[in-house]
Write a protein that binds this DNA or RNA. Structure first.
Lengths: 206, 206
DNA sequence: ATTGTATTGGAGATTGGTCTCTAGAACATG
DNA sequence: CATGTTCTAGAGACCAATCTCCAATACAAT
């Protein structure tokens, strides 16, 4: 018993993603989204309490969409090394499939106005962070991490390195090369090696 | 034969750096800088042609300041592996010494309005990129890189990995831990290893 | 002292973005 | 067909930021 929507939430968020990828978070203004979607501003404020709400939702939808598959990859194998490689590969594959959203992910929540988010939005963000943290910790232990430095190294291997590669290409405008998956896998693998107890490096095994 | 400046360029750029670190590039507004410095807007527009000019200068000054020591570190040793480790360590040390500027560096030139920069500012940016690229390529060859994938791996090892670690801490609000240098050195070292026969690679000799 | 110049100081025009508000359109259901 | 509800549609108030402009000021050099 209601008028059918002409501009629903997912559509508006899609527009927001596109704008964010093109001009950064600051380019995601209510008027820009409205103009791009061909919607009146009233429709925007009907869906979102305000600009911060829209920014929060576009960020959270993207992050949560990414994480869904990421967790699956992290748990895709009994062997923690294989699981780590799968996770790295997933980051690249997902970014290839969703370049705009990947561009968005390279920013931080703070850039999307986190300071003005509602309690509920903050909770969702917090929840995601928590889940990632525990998953990474689990894998780090399985791979033999013993101290904070090891856990940090594993975090780099599983998250930051793949994202670095993505950033390098998305920022440079070059498309992700075909060998990207192989490269991150190789990097992740190198960093998951249990470091010998001395500052020197351990001999390679293959 | 002129009135002595009360708000000179470096001072205003310092303020801009601080604002950028606190609230991102979009927080660097002419009025915010003026207010923070206690300067009238006229003084700002006397120094900078406009907001894009200010953004360009604060970005370029920071990047060039960083690169100065970075190049020195890259050439600090005959042994390319040692030079690479030194470069990584430098990134961390510099970031520790200049947290605000490091925060700024984690954004991209585009976030600082690169699209509206003057030709001269674009040239300076280009020049910096070129120098970094050639230095990294040199080191990559010295370490045995044979194809584009190898060069990319070396770029990750020398630039992206250290910056990733910085990003992780600066975004999280945690201070850089004392073991940060050791960690990045270890990571860089692992990635500089010539991959003998990793899965799916054909060693094409140089 | 006078002159020339770089700078301060700030008023105000203009733009662009956020958000509010109200009128009415489109549909499901009774 | 009447009613209730969701949504569109857009006018316009409000505010913050950019930028222009000009008078006033502080100093150096002559």
């Amino acid at each position: 018993m209601a008028r059918p929507p002409r501009f629903d939430t997912p559509l508006l968020l899609d527009v927001a993603v596109r704008l964010a990828a093109e001009s950064g978070p600051s380019g995601v203004t209510m008027s820009a989204v409205a103009a791009y979607a061909g919607a009146p501003s009233g429709s925007l404020y009907h869906r979102f309490a305000g600009r911060s709400a829209l920014l929060a939702e576009v960020w959270l939808r993207t992050v949560e969409g990414f994480q869904e598959g990421y967790f699956a990859a992290l748990k895709s194998s009994e062997d923690p090394r294989a699981a780590g490689r799968a996770a790295s590969r997933y980051v690249v594959a997902w970014s290839r499939a969703h370049p705009d959203e990947a561009t968005l992910l390279l920013y931080g929540a703070r850039d999307f106005g986190q300071d003005d988010w509602s309690a509920e939005h903050l909770r969702r963000a917090e929840e995601g962070n928590r889940r990632v943290l525990t998953s990474v910790r689990e894998l780090a232990e399985a791979v033999g991490a013993s101290d904070a430095q090891d856990v940090e190294r594993v975090s780099l291997a599983l998250i930051d390195i793949p994202l670095s590669l993505i950033r390098r290409h998305l920022r440079g405008g070059t498309p992700l090369p075909p060998h990207a998956e192989a490269l991150v896998e190789q990097c992740t693998d190198a960093l998951l090696d249990r470091p010998a107890d001395s500052p020197g490096r351990k001999p390679r095994m293959s």
